[in-house]
Structure formats: C-alpha cells, structure tokens
Computed example of a mutant assay.
Amino acid sequence: MTEQTAHNPIAAILDATTRYLATVAAMTDDELRAPSLLPGWSRGHVVAHVGNHAQGLARALRGLRTETPMPIYDSPEARDAEIEARSGGSAEDLAMFSQFASLRLAGELNLMRAFGSVERTPGGPVFSMVDLVEARWREVEIHHADLGLAYGPADWPADFAGYLLSEAANDRAEEVQLTLHAQDIGKTVRVGRGGHGVAGTAGALAWWLVGRGDGSDLVSTRPLPTLGEWTRRTPVK
C-alpha cells in the first residue's frame, strides 16, 4: 500500500462511500437528470457508473476468493451500455442500487485476499490488490465531486487529497514540468523534473491535475499550462 493508504485502506473507502451514499440518497429526479461536471454525462450517468464499478469489483473479488476468476466488466461495450441503461432510473432506484452495490463490495473487501490480480475486461489491463483498493478510493472521492453538488475537492480528507496529488503529478510527468506546493498540508510535489511553482490546497491542485478544475483558485508564478485529458500511467502491472 502507499504511505497514504497503509493505515487502513478499507476504512478509507468505507468512509468515502458513506459520504457519497448520503449525497446520492438526497438527490431528486431533477438533480439526477441535470449535467454533472463530466462532459456528456448527467449525474445519473455518474451514479450509475460508480454503482456498476462497485458491483463489478465485488464480482471480481469474489471470483478471486473462490478461485473462479472474473473480470470487473464483461467488455468495454458492456460497461458503457450498462451505464447508459441505468442512468435513466429514478432517484429512488439509483439510490437503492448504489446502496446494494456498495454493501456487496464492502463485504468482499473485508474478505479480500492480500495477493492476486484481476482483469478489468477479458484480456484487458490487470490490477493487483493494491491497484483495486486505490482505484475504488479514487472512483468514489473523485466522482462524488463530479456530481457538482455540495461536495467538492475542498471536502476531500487530507490523506486522499495528498495521495491523489502525488498520483496525478506522476501521471502528468511526461506532459508538463512543475513544482506544486500544497500549502494546507505542507507538501511539495514535482511534476516531471520540476519547474515553475504552483501553489494552492492539495485538493485544488489535484482537481486541476485530473483535468477537472481550470486552476483559477491556484497561484502560479507563470501562466498555467493547458493540460490534456488525464490518463493513468501506473495502474497496469
């Protein structure tokens, strides 16, 4: 586990999920139909995706535990189709599905083996147990903020904000050269070899690095570079 998740990674996911589910349970049908912060996706799409990921990950972990390997998703096309089909459900239906899928995943996480790997799709990227735990943490916290409601990067726990800042800086290392100063947690992170300074909270810096924020809440000694789409560099083993 990374330094940030080594203390209790499962507890971090469960805490994040509790906050996320509270937001989902309070949403109305009209709020679900409204656009999320992700281009082309309504909030219903985001909620459907987070729930489907929980359900698929639970299936994969159960397959690992019972020695009957299963991928997280049957195929990229099946993943997309399931999100689209479920996104139009009512607020009540999506809240119930989210709760069920999260409970199922929580059970499998608590029974999770320390070793092994899982395919995202048949023949696709392979994830270790560390990858899976950290990926779920990112899914819940980032997509909670993507809903564009009362929860945002300023509400992320400090350990998650610091973790995501380091991960996203590594992901951008071949794209830009920056030195980031997370003033709220006293952490400095280099992107690539390091470069001109950019300061802000850990959450604001990480949010910008993952391609969400425009960086208007950051302080930079030079104009901020334009970032491309966020792509993970390190999940495949």
Rank of each mutant, 00 (worst) to 15 (best):
W41N: 08
Q177T: 13
T68P: 02
F100C: 12
L132D: 03
A168K: 01
F127D: 04
K187W: 09
V126R: 12
L37Q: 13
G124N: 04
G213E: 03
G107E: 11
A158C: 04
P122W: 00
M70V: 10
N52Q: 13
G124E: 02
T18V: 10
E175Q: 12
A58Y: 02
A22T: 09
G215Y: 04
E77M: 10
E67L: 12
V191C: 05
V130G: 12
Y163V: 05
D159S: 13
H53D: 14
V176H: 05
H143W: 06
N52C: 11
Y73Q: 00
N8H: 11
A168I: 03
N110M: 15
P76Q: 08
G200Y: 09
G123D: 09
E108D: 09
A206L: 01
G162L: 01
V210W: 12
E134R: 11
A206P: 00
A78R: 10
A101C: 07
R193G: 15
G63T: 00
D80I: 08
V24F: 00
G162D: 07
S220G: 04
D131C: 08
N170E: 15
W137R: 11
T121M: 06
E84G: 09
G203E: 05
M70L: 11
A150I: 06
A81V: 04
E229Q: 14
G51L: 04
A85G: 01
V198K: 02
T188P: 07
D214Q: 05
A204I: 03
A16C: 06
P122S: 06
A204T: 07
F97Q: 12
F100E: 11
T188D: 12
W41A: 04
L180P: 00
D74E: 15
V219L: 13
A154C: 10
E139Y: 09
A16D: 13
A26S: 07
L21E: 03
A182M: 03
S117M: 08
F115H: 15
K187G: 08
E82K: 10
A202K: 07
H196P: 11
T221M: 07
L178E: 06
G211A: 06
V191A: 02
G107M: 06
L14G: 02
D80K: 13
W137Y: 14
T201M: 10
R232F: 14
L164M: 08
V140D: 11
E139G: 10
P69I: 01
A182W: 03
L109N: 04
L57Y: 03
R62P: 03
H49S: 05
L205E: 06
R172C: 05
P9C: 08
R190W: 11
A150S: 15
A22H: 04
T68K: 11
E175H: 10
E31N: 01
L209M: 03
R43H: 04
A204V: 03
A54L: 01
T18S: 13
E92R: 15
E31V: 02
Q4Y: 15
G89Y: 09
T66D: 14
V219A: 14
A26L: 01
W230M: 11
D155Q: 11
H49K: 05
A60H: 01
E67S: 13
L109W: 09
A12N: 10
V210L: 10
G56F: 07
R79Q: 05
W207V: 00
V140I: 15
I83Y: 05
E108C: 04
A85R: 10
M129K: 07
N110T: 13
